[in-house]
Every structure is written in structure tokens, then in C-alpha cells.
Design a protein around this nucleic acid. Structure first.
Lengths: 182, 182
DNA sequence: AAAATATCGTACATTGTGTTCGATAAAATG
DNA sequence: CATTTTATCGAACACAATGTACGATATTTT
């Protein structure tokens, strides 16, 4: 990929991130973005079809990071690599979110929250469908999946909206207390 | 209130309901609404400041109905009036939603879904905060409330999105199985 | 019947979108 | 290094939607 393209793409992402800290996504105009990013109008449209497709690609990249299994050494939050149970995996995801909380908080305003939610659920389903399948409840499978994924995403959104005051371990701990038979 | 105002207001609500069945809220223009409602442009703006405030008022009216405790005789779904437990109250709400599913399904597209969710949570909190307070779990109060309300709303949204195939009784039954200690 | 007021409808200013195109600058290629 | 390829610039443009203004008309209230 051409170096210029990469620079422009990064500048656009950065610009949107910055702007989202001051206003809601629906109030950000393409003009705002190209001013903040210092690029030409036609350049923006050669990279993204619309403002929404820009947001989509931003969310996708963000969740690729959040759900990546490779923690960089300094960010490793005391997990031995053989911990593979659902508890530590969920905690792992929440630590990533906390580490990127600046950008994620910005996205969680107005319209763009819906895109966040959509991508979050998609990635969670891929990652945890098997885990969920093994949880025994007396309800239909699709209901169970919907419930676990949905309630977890709602919990995380609540956690973010309230300023990430709890530790990821506490959030996951409380979540599992609500959801697991004791 | 002037009869003309009432007629216009109703015409605007009907128009938006109709339009939402064919396209998403964000794709409906004020022009669409005034054409469908057969009113003048300035008339629309004398009733509502923006398209969004129209949606707000529509949602508010809708949930006033959904959470009203007086079922009309022919719509009463076999509840004796002394049933006051959380199960039958939730079921009651879901029957109302099912009865108004046409309009509610329409609102559950695109942007407007968020407003639905917001109002739904607000009304649920008011109605069930006391019930929830009496449920024993080993987690903080605010976490518990957030979890119960959030997971119920997600469950209802999932139910609606999948075509309301289950009966309200089944939905509430499965929900409580996930949430109540047995 | 008279006064009050809701609606009509047209016109208008404004804002944002997405496209086009020739000129310019920067990168890849050999 | 020279050449080709390609990304960016920037200004102009057509288009669509928003929200406002106002005099004329119709309907309701008193």
C-alpha cells in the first residue's frame, strides 16, 4: 500500500477520533473531518464512500485489536497463557477495552453506539458460541445465546458509560454471578 | 385543544408509522411526512421542532400505552387482577407490545431503535425497581439493576426482531429461568 | 357574527453531500 | 537518476434536505 494512502487513512481515523470526543457522530460533518485531517475533499471520498463506511471500518479495526489474543508484554495483565476458561477470556477482552478506552468512549455517543454494539456482538458470538453451548439451562439454545451475549454487551456498555470504575475482573465476576448457577 | 391540531397531530403520527414500515427512520424526510400526512410544511414545523422530537413524542405515547395497567376487556389475556408478581407483570407488558407490534416493529429499524430502547428502559426502571431490589444476588445493587433491565430489554428486542414467534408467557418464562436462582 | 388561530403553500437562505477534473506532488519502478 | 504511475489538492458544481417567513385562506371558538 502506498505510503501516502496509509498516512491519509491514519489521518482520517485520528481526525474522527478527535472529533468524536467533542461532538456526537451525527453532528460531525465530512467538512469537519477533512479540516481536522488536513486533506482535500476528494481525497476523503477516494478513501471512503460515506461517513458511515468510515465508522464501520474504524469499528472493525478496533475490535480486531480488542479480540486479538496476543497481548504485548507490557500490557499483559497477569494471565498465564494456559488460562482458557470463559472468565479469563472475557476479562482479557475487557482489559483491552479499558486500554483503548479513549477511542471507545468516543464512539459510544449517539448513533455510533449502535455500530459498536453490532460489532461487539458479532465478535463475541464468534469467540464464545462454543463456550455458551456447553452451559446448561432449561431454555432453547437460541434464547440462551441471545441472553448471554446481549446481557454481557449491555453490561460492558453500562460499565463504559459509568466511567470504567470497576476493574475488568470485578465486572466479569459480577456478570458470572448473575449468569452462572451456583 | 383545537380539533384541527388534534387531527394534524394524528395525521403526522400515522404518516410516520406508515413510512417506517417501508424505510428506516433516518431515510424518512420531513417532505415524505408532510406528503403522506397531506399537510403544509409550516404546519409540520408548528407542531414539532424536528423529526427527532416527533419520534420522541411518538415513543412516549407508545410506552404510556404499553405500561398502562388498564387492559381493555377484549384484550385482557386471562390475568386475574390480583396477580401482582413480576412474572405476570412482565407478561402483561409483552402482550401489549405484541398487540401493538405493527408500530413497534416499524420503530425498531435503524436509528429509531435507540429511542425505543431508551424509553423502554426508563419505563421498566420506574415499574420494576422495587421488585428488583428484593432479588438477592451477591453483586452491587446498581450492577444488579442494570443487568436485569438491560438483559430484559435485549431479550424483548431479540423477540421482536425474530418475528414474535414465542408467546409472551414463554419469553418471560425463559427469561426468568436465566435470571432467577432455582 | 366576530375574533382568534391553525393551516396552506410558496419562496427563500442555509447547510451538507457526493462528484468532477485538471494541476501538482510524491511514490514506485527499472 | 529518469520515467511512469498514482495519490492528493482544491475549487467548482449539482443536488437534496432543513428550517424559516409571511400573506392568504379556512376553521374553530367565543
Amino acid at each position: 500500500m502506498d505510503r501516502r494512502q496509509m498516512k491519509t487513512r491514519a489521518a482520517i481515523f485520528d481526525a474522527l477520533s478527535t472529533l468524536l470526543k467533542h461532538k456526537k457522530f451525527e453532528d460531525v460533518t465530512v467538512q469537519d473531518i477533512i479540516d481536522e485531517a488536513n486533506i482535500g475533499r476528494s481525497t476523503f471520498y477516494s478513501h471512503f464512500e460515506t461517513k458511515d463506511s468510515l465508522l464501520e471500518e474504524m469499528c472493525d479495526e478496533m475490535f480486531k485489536h480488542v479480540f486479538s489474543n496476543d497481548l504485548s508484554p507490557e500490557k499483559s495483565h497477569d494471565f498465564s497463557k494456559d488460562e482458557k476458561d470463559i472468565s479469563s477470556q472475557l476479562t482479557h477482552v475487557l482489559w483491552h477495552i479499558k486500554d483503548h478506552s479513549g477511542n471507545i468512549k468516543a464512539i459510544m455517543n449517539g448513533e455510533s453506539e449502535k455500530m459498536f454494539t453490532g460489532y461487539f456482538k458479532k465478535y463475541l458470538e464468534d469467540a464464545f458460541k462454543e463456550h455458551i453451548r456447553h452451559m446448561p439451562y432449561g431454555v432453547p439454545e437460541d434464547f440462551k445465546e441471545q441472553f448471554i451475549i446481549g446481557s454481557f454487551v449491555e453490561t460492558v456498555k453500562w460499565w463504559i458509560a459509568n466511567g470504567l470504575k470497576m476493574n475488568p475482573e470485578e465486572v466479569v465476576g459480577n456478570f458470572l454471578k448473575m449468569v452462572i448457577r451456583v
